[in-house]
Design a protein around this nucleic acid. Structure first.
Lengths: 227, 227
DNA sequence: GAAGGGATCGCCGGGATTTTTC
DNA sequence: CCGAAAAATCCCGGCGATCCCT
């Protein structure tokens, strides 16, 4: 083991991306950097558990699996039984209708993919709707992270303000921005821009929220997919 | 600074992504993680106490707006007329045993280096922002020395005026000089020149302020470093 | 402010490059 | 007239919002 020094904020960033209790800095960093894990990782397991639980299509299962395949490729060591037990507990807990606010970090990516995989979403032809739906999903996944993310300067324009808690702020910062409230969310977004910019906005928010690049890519693709 | 433990292989991975000599682990990781740069302006504000948490929510927008805003006409953030009064108050505030104009003191130089060492600064791609940030930092370090320094003939152009307490002075002395207010500082600088000239301007101010050559060199390097 | 969506086009800022001055 | 220093033009990339299409 090596010791490295990281600044306070980066430390917080890393710590905040803990996905399972007791995870080491290495584990977290490896996940964020898309490096293969040394220890068995539970992400793949989690995904499949969740899959059964939520009863979704097979195709998504495959997609999801392939997306994370990198992290499962060279995993030779198998983790103790405890791991599995934990998983089962989680499944049970999640078996009830999910109305609670604190969605465990672990399932962020999966929840998001489930949302984007619904026929309703895929069928949706309007970019604004897909845009708003994704934002709404992001908020629901982790409203604190989302609320923090949209404050970042990285999701602001040169003169326009992209996100705010109220319509007026957005109206004041630009002309004809066409603000819309994000569904089931206290925040507003501006809407009068092309799809490219909408994608940039999504990307910015997700990056701020700490999603890894793979997931961000997945969402971007889902957003773009027009049929 | 926080200490974290990473496994050998991950350590090698991070180290192998060094892009500039002397880069810290934090810098490298921030780049690899696509961590958004923070608001440079607030860093400058926070020069003397950089570990403290920064509230970026409200002040950020305003600061950013003032920097990029083109309609500087109705900006009344700073009042030139009361300038002298303000200065005097600050003198009194600074009236501690070792208050001098000699800026070459270790601690001041160190403060400056701390600012330039932040990943936020290093990651800043725009020369103007780095330029303004450094000037802001210089002012913060010793506003009297700074205010005196920019009056010197050595920081004026042949026809252009480089620094002034108000935009108009700069506008009057040249065409398309693109003056900008230095963040958290009552003074303005012109901005429409290449990076070489910006560096000459920094150098001039610092020399006038009494920085030693080593520190000046350090700052020049930090300013130039572009990635 | 009310039709709505969003691609297209034009403006703006950054700063290297070119032009001008001494 | 040449070289150096300063000034300012101008190109490029990014963002805003107009305006065309549905």
């Amino acid at each position: 083991m090596k010791i490295i020094e990281v600044d306070e904020e980066l430390y917080q960033y890393i710590a905040s991306h803990t996905q399972s209790i007791g995870e080491s800095a290495s584990d977290i960093l490896r996940r964020l950097l898309h490096l293969p894990s040394l220890n068995i990782r539970s992400v793949a397991l989690d995904l499949s558990d969740k899959t059964e639980n939520i009863d979704r299509s097979l195709s998504l299962q495959q997609e999801t699996a392939s997306i994370y395949s990198e992290s499962t490729v060279n995993q030779q060591t198998i983790q103790p039984q405890e791991e599995i037990v934990t998983q089962q507990v989680q499944v049970v807990e999640r078996a009830e209708p999910d109305t609670e606010l604190d969605v465990s970090k672990q399932s962020d990516a999966a929840d998001l993919m489930i949302l984007l995989d619904t026929p309703e979403f895929k069928q949706e032809s309007k970019a604004v709707v897909r845009f708003l739906t994704i934002l709404s999903g992001l908020y629901k996944l982790n409203n604190d992270a989302f609320t923090q993310a949209i404050r970042s300067e990285n999701v602001q324009g040169r003169t326009r303000v992209y996100f705010a808690q109220d319509e007026q702020t957005l109206l004041d910062a630009g002309n004809h921005t066409k603000p819309k409230q994000i569904p089931d969310c206290p925040h507003w977004v501006i809407t009068n821009n092309n799809s490219g910019r909408k994608m940039i906005m999504l990307e910015g928010v997700m990056r701020e929220m700490g999603f890894d690049e793979k997931t961000i890519d997945y969402v971007k693709n889902a957003f773009v997919a027009d049929n």
